[in-house]
Amino acid sequence: MREPTLWILHILAGIIILIFLGIHMGIMHLDTILTSLGVGYKNPLSWSSVLIRNKALFFTITYILLLGAALYHGFYGLRNILFELSLGKSAQKAVNWLLFFVGLFLFIYGGYAAIAAYVI
């Protein structure tokens, strides 16, 4: 009964990506409109602007959530592609563990970067 849960998480991760990537794209590319509305940052690509976002807890949390969702969504998709190569049960198990540990490593590494930028 694990498969439906994994698939539901895949869909949820997709929704999270849609929302947070939407926020990210808005901040990066709609700065003129957003600043005229009193939100957002002028020159979002400037160093000072990046620093301000890194020191904001909201952005640190969204970076970590987006990282987790993107890693899960991407690795679940990769798992699907690999499973479609008619893998045997033991090979499926190996793929599951390999993708889990690679994903976990990347999540810890990326999460550390986001937290370090906030704390330091």
Binding site: M1, R2, E3, P4, L6, W7, N80, F83, E84, Q92
Partner: peptide, 13 residues
């Protein structure tokens, strides 16, 4: 049927 369908080769593919 749910037990038979909740396998990797089920509708998720």
């Amino acid at each position: 049927r749910l037990e038979l369908l909740c396998v990797p080769e089920g509708p998720w593919r």
